[in-house]
């Protein structure tokens, strides 16, 4: 019998420790870790293997292999031009999608996403249909001295088509993160809409827009499917690596592919630096 003043708790024993669930949790943790590691390995192994196998040879052949050098230069220049055109043309669209509510906004948004879901060779065929020499637009451009297909212009067009939606999406998100009231306050302080955008929204969005541009540039550099349809020659780096693979086999394609991977690390590093700055 319990002493007076002492609570009797026998009738409600404490719940048994849930050992089974702790073991299950541990197994689940290990399983998730293993699956995640395998996934990480799946991503890293081919890239690392490629760089290890062909990186040294690729870098050393840069001085001797003028075709590789020219293709890298062509890739960088066309990707930069495509990105600049995308930034100029798509920034207003991204801003409008982020700020304005209007009829047809969902349709515009879907249109901007369309190139993301089209297989890229199909995108190339579509561009060829519109901009090829046999089309009214392509014919008119050709007559005016501007050849689109099988020219650097075609490369820029293909890069722009497939990579601009990434810029629009990222830029739109960037604008949406900047509270519209900053702009409105600037407007009450005397700025018109454009001046408020230039003095307030643009500086507040600058880092995000640059990051969006870097993403677009990186995507443009890595494009193959649309470019190969529209402009096989002159060859950008991705087309060159494909060409070397089909013409000479894996060993000749390796150095080009490895250099292209190293080339792609540039925007990746820039992006990390920008995001690090944001954080």
């Amino acid at each position: 019998m319990a002493a007076p003043g002492i609570s009797v708790l026998e009738s409600t024993p404490p719940p048994a420790p849930r050992r089974a669930s702790a073991v299950t949790r541990a197994i689940a943790t290990v399983a998730v870790a293993v699956v995640s590691s395998l996934f990480l390995l799946f991503i890293v192994a081919p890239v690392a293997g490629l760089v290890v196998a062909g990186g040294g040879r690729g870098l050393s052949s840069l001085s001797a292999d003028s075709e590789l050098r020219d293709s890298l230069l062509l890739t960088a220049v066309t990707a930069t031009i495509a990105t600049l055109i995308g930034v100029v043309g798509a920034t207003p669209i991204a801003y409008v999608l982020a700020r304005r509510s209007f009829r047809g906004r969902a349709v515009l948004s879907a249109v901007m996403d369309l190139p993301l879901v089209i297989p890229h060779p199909v995108a190339g065929i579509a561009l060829l249909l519109v901009l090829g020499r046999g089309s009214p637009v392509g014919g008119a451009l050709y007559a005016a001295g501007l050849r689109v297909a099988s020219s650097p212009v075609g490369i820029v067009c293909a890069m722009l088509f497939v990579s601009a939606p990434l810029y629009v999406s990222a830029a739109r998100e960037t604008f949406a993160r900047v509270d519209a009231r900053y702009e409105w306050v600037a407007r009450t302080l005397g700025d018109d809409a454009w001046r408020a955008f230039r003095r307030v929204t643009l500086p507040l969005s600058a880092r995000g827009l640059v990051a969006a541009g870097v993403v677009m540039w990186a995507r443009a550099v890595s494009e193959f499917g649309a470019i190969v349809i529209l402009t096989y020659n002159p060859k950008v780096a991705s087309v060159l690596s494909y060409d070397r693979f089909t013409s000479f086999g894996l060993s000749e394609a390796l150095p080009v592919a490895a250099v292209l991977v190293l080339f792609a690390l540039i925007p990746l590093a820039a992006l990390r630096a920008l995001r690090g700055g944001t954080a």
């Binding site: 409105w184 306050v185 407007r187 009450t188 302080l189 700025d191 018109d192 809409a193």
Partner: peptide, 12 residues
């Protein structure tokens, strides 16, 4: 009229 033409100040 747009905000910049209203000669107002706003403090949120």
């Amino acid at each position: 009229a747009p905000p910049e033409a209203r000669r107002i100040g706003i403090v949120y």
